[in-house]
């Protein structure tokens, strides 16, 4: 696995962004994404970019780390830019390349779409870089709490998410172990006929599933032994704290949004 790929990774640091309530970050990212989709003018993009850059600086995660970590994404962004350059056929012809005409509207559209993509990825990456997966889960659970009255299994969903997070390293280790065991029995995962390779994948997946089921069974029994009976009469140990810092950040965000709509016309 490419270790420098940072999407979804958490970087522990002590920064104001890390200290924010996960709910605050989640709500802001949500509305930021919505707003970004309605951005049309250059100045509105500038405002959005400034907010994201401000967040990135305040997170104290090294900017080079972010730029490098997003490297695989740059490719997608540039591809998006080029595709739009050739597909859009509105406005005046600026110049032509290999016999293809490039229109001025196309350049603007391509710039808009790719900056939009960039901002979305930057903001969501900032969220995962500064928030532990389990806090995100907690935030999702509390934010969706009103839906419980509609009989949606919010607690169960959140528990499922947190247990999956808990077992990801375990399963990675297990996959490594089983693939080494099967390789020792002469299997080759990389070369050979597609039928053989399919068989090789089965030799890996079946033991992995069996062991995951066994783990699930053990875990269910351990949870039951410790008095787990669903959401019934349950309290929570992890708490999310909404502080004055969160309030300030929300106010800044509201001002940004107002400024955005002002410049967006």
């Amino acid at each position: 696995m490419n270790q420098s790929f940072i999407i979804g990774q958490y970087v522990p640091k002590e920064s104001p962004v890390h200290a924010l309530d996960a709910r605050t970050k989640l709500v802001i990212v949500f509305f930021y994404v919505l707003v970004t989709f309605s951005a049309e003018t250059l100045s509105s993009y500038l405002i959005l970019f400034l907010f994201a850059a401000f967040g990135a600086v305040m997170s104290r995660v090294h900017p080079l780390f972010i730029v490098k970590g997003l490297r695989p994404i740059w490719f997608i962004i540039i591809l998006t830019f080029i595709l739009h350059l050739f597909i859009q056929r509105q406005g005046e012809v600026l110049f032509s390349i290999f016999g293809y005409a490039i229109y001025d509207q196309a350049v603007i559209q391509a710039a808009i779409i790719s900056s939009r993509l960039f901002l979305l990825i930057l903001m969501t990456t900032l969220l995962t870089l500064t928030t532990t997966p389990i806090s995100i889960t907690d935030a999702v659970e509390t934010l969706l709490k009103p839906l419980k009255s509609l009989k949606l299994p919010i607690h169960e969903l959140a528990l499922m998410m947190s247990i999956s997070l808990r077992f990801i390293p375990t399963l990675i280790e297990e996959t490594d172990k089983i693939s080494k065991a099967q390789a020792s029995r002469g299997i080759d995962f990389r070369t050979g006929k597609w039928r053989d390779r399919l068989k090789a994948i089965f030799a890996l997946l079946i033991p992995l599933f069996i062991s995951a089921f066994k783990r699930a069974e053990d875990l269910a029994m351990a949870m039951e032994a410790r008095g787990y009976r669903g959401d019934y009469g349950r309290t929570k140990f992890r708490e999310l704290k909404f502080t004055s810092l969160d309030l300030i950040v929300f106010l800044i965000f509201i001002i940004i949004v107002i400024g955005f709509f002002y410049f967006n016309g």
Partner: peptide, 19 residues
Amino acid sequence: KSLRRKVGVVFQYPEHQLF
């Protein structure tokens, strides 16, 4: 591959590799 045939490995908890 021919090395692996000559050197057999029984991993820890080898029952987990059955499929």
